[in-house]
Amino acid sequence: MLVRARGLTKRFEDFTAVAGIDFDLYRGEAFGFLGPNGAGKSSTMRMIGCVSPPTSGELAILGLDPVRDGSAIRARLGVVPQEDTLDVELTVRENLLVYGRYFGLPRKVIRERTAALLDFVQLADRAADKVDPLSGGLKRRLTIARSLINEPEILILDEPTTGLDPQARHVVWDRLFRLKQRGVTLILTTHYMDEAEQLCDRLVVMDHGRFAAEGSPRDLIARYCSPEVLELRFDPELHEQAGDKLKDFPAERAELLADRILLYVTDGDEALAAVRETGLEPLTSLVRRGTLEDVFLHLTGRRLED
């Protein structure tokens, strides 16, 4: 077991960011914290990264105490923080060289790893460039390369693709997936359900500092969502009226969002036909499979990216 938390709590004055959570993390798995902003994900990551002492509860990382042995633990972690903290006074290559030195690695080892890592994140041709002009996606890739310089046993990623455009996100996902295939243990936070579904073997849905649910993405969808979801969009003037009418519709559940109505059903096409029979005509309709977003909506009554 790499990380063990029991009743882990983080309080800032009178605000409780993490309200007593329990989890175990095993070697080789990809574990995700899914939740909206302010759910307590980053606070949890900082505690695991040994840069934030827990207020109470137990936390053991690699069998060590993060407060007493923080420095020794950090030597074995890789961290991709939410905000880029690249060294803008240095070049791409120097960022890896200098960062490796912070870990006390010999220069020769760092040089070898730097070459391999820059290849891995496809930045070898930018090695001599300054960091500042790089795009957000390239900076993120460099941050990932940097976090791997000490060949960490656990890689901690706090919202690794927030703020990136879709194409850049896919490149990052691809690299993280390869790391996972190589057996690197990943802990990541995200508020993108597609990210969690793609990368996580196991995840917790976090809300207000607590776990609302825990399991594999597939389990969670099976447990908290219907096989299919029918999304309906009505003329804004008819939106509320349609909502009232569909409340008693024979679906597992109905959610009235600001712009759409979601019906959780077994067969989406059948349900759409039934809706039309009641005399309602949606402007657009979409039948899709249940996702983690639906799970989150069900568990918390809120959407993830609100």
Binding site: G49, V51, S71, R74, L77, P81, D87, E89, Y102, N150
Partner: peptide, 14 residues
């Protein structure tokens, strides 16, 4: 601004 120390404190340096 540069967040240099945040980056460094993620390493073994105290």
């Amino acid at each position: 601004y540069a967040k240099l120390y945040d980056a460094i404190l993620a390493t073994p340096i105290r």
